[in-house]
Design a protein around this nucleic acid. Structure first.
Lengths: 246, 246
DNA sequence: CGCCGCCTTGAACTGTATCAAGCAAAGTGG
DNA sequence: CCACTTTGCTTGATACAGTTCAAGGCGGCG
């Protein structure tokens, strides 16, 4: 019942009994993967949609010079490309940052659900639109903020997203990233990330050790990162009636 | 007939007579806007989908300090958020970079087409997935490349996109941007953009004056920008049969 | 004509990268 | 269970890409 997909999508709409049952069915058959493995590689043409139930994953691209850029994080409740079957091939890879539990939903099942459960279809569409909004906000982050603000913003975003799926307790949550990966996310070197983190600790903003982040002063962190959560579209829309599933 | 939407979407699929006619109908009623005006503002909840027929537009966000980040360019053939009616409000604004001709497609018409013309629906979905891929590539651009490569990459991307809609002739096309706007796109100051452009001119890579960009050596520019067009998904998929419209 | 937006140039400054080394914790294999 | 390796974190010194500030020029437009 209490699965992260249902939980996440519920912040967009209320599901019928039937909807909820269908969503839970989807998550019945799961596979376990170990940290560090890749779910999908650039160039692949997957025939299932992967849906993350436990653990963290990330989208990334490699560059000719061996550098890597992380372009998104996936946390429990997130889907890897609902409509991947439209494009010819993946233009990026998806790797796992922790051991993970994943449900692979065959294309046909996916299509059937999208057809027969408009409310679910709409909620999934909402989720992909939010993903897009997150990409835009990352561009803002990389283009306009200094190192300190960049990381502050990232931490705020992950806190909000993790909270949405019930994985934050007392402003504390899993963040299974190395400092180098943080750097590859916001376009900094690991050395500089290290120094920024130290400053954050010194200023009693956060604690980060092992794979756990504790945010001590979220208001201040939001201010520093110029974080405004509206782009996450967490609030319910006023009315959902009379909406097509597109 | 020869309208940029049809032309763009044709690079994804072949339309039937009926599809083409419907697409052309959409572009029958157009509005003209002048350069500098805003099509949609952050916070709006538009009830039409705007579709750009002539001219350039851009998505942008303002920051508390007054800085601006450009998060996308829209060129003829591009749509502003097909499914905007899913989200509660716009999380960014869309402004015009030149005088423009725009078709406003009422929500109901949009929904009707999506329902009754699966091939069009699929093509539009393809277009939004490409938009998303472009966002990811921009993140890579901002995170991993130096000023010279950033601008080289941007110019290559715009050249490919403009070519797709038939607006490039002899490697020359409209680029109605100030140096400051270029800077707001890739996260540089206008001063530095200026110096980079001068270097590009000195090295006979481009000419840029007025609002026209000429690329003299696209191969070299691609190499400098590490540009690889696969993320634009310009190639046809092998088979389009037996696909749902999702 | 005179103003204003945009481009250009120069000089000084700084945030972040680079390079290099050391250290601690966690695996790994014998 | 201990040596060994690996991986991630930390620190310092130095270098430079890109910023900031400031001023001048030029072309288009009211």
């Amino acid at each position: 019942m209490d699965n992260p997909l249902t939980r996440k999508l519920s912040s967009f709409t209320d599901f019928s009994e039937e909807d909820t049952r269908r969503l839970n069915d989807l998550c019945r058959n799961t596979d376990s993967y170990i940290s560090g493995s890749d779910l999908i590689m650039e160039g692949d043409r997957p025939d299932s949609v992967f849906f993350l139930l436990e653990g963290w994953a990330y989208r990334y691209k490699f560059l000719p010079d061996g550098n890597r850029q992380i372009v998104a994080y996936l946390i429990p409740g997130d889907l890897c490309d609902i409509h991947i079957f439209i494009l010819k091939q993946m233009d990026h890879s998806i790797g796992l940052l922790s051991d993970a539990k994943v449900a692979a939903i065959p294309k046909v099942d996916m299509l059937e659900i999208l057809d027969s459960h408009p409310r679910i279809a709409q909620a999934l569409l909402w989720a992909t639109l939010v993903d897009e909004a997150v990409l835009r906000e990352w561009i803002v982050n990389m283009g306009q903020r200094d190192a300190f603000s960049k990381l502050a913003h990232l931490f705020c975003e992950m806190c909000f997203r993790m909270r949405q799926v019930g994985l934050v307790h007392a402003n504390q949550f899993d963040l299974p990233l190395t400092q180098e990966q943080l750097g590859d996310t916001v376009g900094l070197t690991k050395v500089h990330v290290n120094r920024v983190l130290q400053r954050m600790r010194r200023e009693s903003l956060i604690s980060l050790s092992g794979k756990t982040l504790v945010i001590h002063d979220i208001e201040r962190l939001e201010k520093i990162g110029e974080f405004d959560s509206t782009y996450l579209h967490l609030e319910r829309r006023p009315s959902l009636s009379s909406q097509s599933n597109y």
